[in-house]
């Protein structure tokens, strides 16, 4: 009896599966079409920028009138661009490292020792999104004018500003990774094994949240590298890639070829971020990083 019923169940489910499979076949074409559209949406502008960076003159026709390596050569050897690029690289790298150094202990502490500071961190992590960067930048300028006027317009103040606006990216990546690793549990275990707090962070926390560190680091790097408003307001006197780019856009009528050079810089920026993203994807292969705030906050490591 029971066996018959089970067999009936299988038989009645089979057509449904067939239908599903047929449905899948129909939508496959649609899926390829959609994928192609998305791919085109991303790639065509990049291709246009790429072609523009090699174009002598591109006005009347679908493709440029001629091709040249001059823009690349001129851009790469231009000391101002070199300096803007290295400033931006240094700024973004420092921002990422400062954010990791600040956020990891705070996130760890909020999970293991004092859950109450969690609310404070979460509110702080929402502020950079709730307020326009221009407003934050202006506030920072006013504040530094009162507290430490000698830092105004310096690299140090800009790093501090970028660290402040980019830290939520690191926080969410790191906090998600800690939830996924069940860091509270591992930390208690390490304590019972006789590890000191420093040993716990070094031997247990860091290795088990490395995916979150890399992801968060990259996101804050990218946020800082492309940031414009704050650099404009509190980084006067500095040259970053976005500031230089804005200047190129404004000065189109003055200098021939500024758009072409802009295209070169855009591609270089893209290349840097693309390589870093590839590193992250490679590093995190097979692991899921939860980036949503509070992801897994209530799961006590999942396996309980």
């Amino acid at each position: 009896m029971a066996v018959d019923a089970a067999r009936d169940g299988v038989r009645s489910r089979a057509p449904a599966r067939e239908r599903l499979r047929a449905g899948g076949r129909i939508s496959r074409a649609a899926r390829y079409l959609f994928f192609g559209a998305v791919l085109g949406y991303f790639c065509i502008p990049m291709a246009a920028v790429l072609i523009y960076s090699f174009a002598t003159r591109w006005t009347a026709n679908v493709l440029p009138d001629g091709y040249t390596l001059d823009w690349w050569q001129a851009t790469v050897s231009n000391p101002r661009i070199q300096s803007a690029f290295s400033t931006s690289m240094a700024l973004a790298t420092l921002t990422a490292f400062i954010d990791i150094a600040v956020v990891v202990p705070a996130a760890y502490w909020s999970r293991v020792r004092n859950a109450r500071i969690r609310h404070v961190i979460e509110v702080a992590a929402a502020v950079p999104f709730a307020l326009p960067y221009v407003v934050i930048a202006f506030g920072l300028m006013q504040f530094s004018g009162v507290v430490a006027p000698q830092f105004q317009g310096t690299f140090v103040l800009l790093v501090a500003g970028h660290a402040a606006i980019a830290f939520p990216f690191v926080y969410w990546a790191v906090d998600g990774a800690m939830a996924a690793a069940g860091i509270e549990r591992l930390s208690e275990t390490a304590e019972a094994c006789g590890a000191s707090p420093m040993q716990i962070v070094r031997l247990v926390v860091i290795p088990n949240i490395s995916s979150g560190l890399v992801t968060g680091g990259l996101l804050s790097f990218a946020a800082s590298f492309g940031e414009f408003a704050m650099a404009q307001i509190i980084g006067r006197g500095l040259d970053t890639v976005p500031l230089w780019s804005a200047e190129m856009i404004r000065s189109y009528s003055d200098t021939a070829g500024s758009y072409n050079r802009l295209a070169v810089v855009t591609l270089l920026t893209f290349a840097v971020l693309f390589v870093l993203s590839a590193v992250v994807v490679y590093w995190n292969r097979g692991q899921t990083v939860r980036l949503l705030p509070g992801a897994g906050a209530s799961d006590e490591g999942g396996r309980r």
Partner: peptide
């Protein structure tokens, strides 16, 4: 503090360190 107590502890959820092998887990303390 816990780390200075002469105890060994086993948890319901195993709580092995996922980044370490069996040997390294046992060597950890």
């Amino acid at each position: 503090p816990t780390r200075d107590r002469p105890i060994g502890m086993v948890f319901q959820s195993y709580a092995l360190f996922p980044n370490l092998t069996v040997r390294q887990n046992i060597a950890f303390p």
